[in-house]
Amino acid sequence: MKEYTTKKVEELLQSGVKLNLIDVREIKEVREGKIPGAVNIPLGQLEFRLKELEKEKEYVMVCRSGGRSGRAVQFLESYGYRAVNLAGGMLDWEGEVE
């Protein structure tokens, strides 16, 4: 499974790279703060919202610690999507939050 560190994602965002961030945490968790621009699709809803995603794009999956986002990456890859896990998740994130 492909993974990015939180530092790498922060550097990419700061340099102006457009990342497709999907936060798979529950809504109440996301209310506490998320990476700017991330779209919230709770892990339990991901299979029902696949039509919102495009197979040509790469998605960076985010959760609290990297476990749920890792499962999301495996799920998406099994359907032919390109996805990357944010290693360490929001616990390791030191960048801006909204």
Rank of each mutant, 00 (worst) to 15 (best):
A72T: 04
M1A: 12
A83C: 03
E47C: 12
Q74Y: 10
E58I: 13
V39W: 11
A83S: 06
S15T: 12
Q74K: 11
E58V: 15
G44E: 09
Y79Q: 06
E52I: 08
R64Q: 12
E32L: 12
K55Q: 14
G80V: 12
V30R: 05
G89K: 03
K8S: 11
L50F: 12
P42H: 15
K34D: 11
N85E: 04
R49I: 00
G67H: 03
A83F: 03
Y59I: 06
C63T: 06
S65E: 04
L76C: 09
W93V: 07
V97K: 11
L76K: 09
F48E: 00
L91M: 14
E58A: 12
Y59C: 06
L21P: 01
K8C: 02
G67Y: 01
A83G: 07
W93H: 13
G66F: 01
D23I: 05
V24I: 08
S65R: 08
G66N: 02
G88F: 05
E54I: 06
L76V: 07
K51M: 09
G44I: 06
E3D: 07
K51T: 05
G89H: 01
G44L: 09
A38F: 04
E77F: 09
K34N: 15
A72R: 00
W93S: 08
G44M: 10
I41N: 01
N20R: 14
A83T: 03
K2Y: 12
G33L: 13
E32R: 09
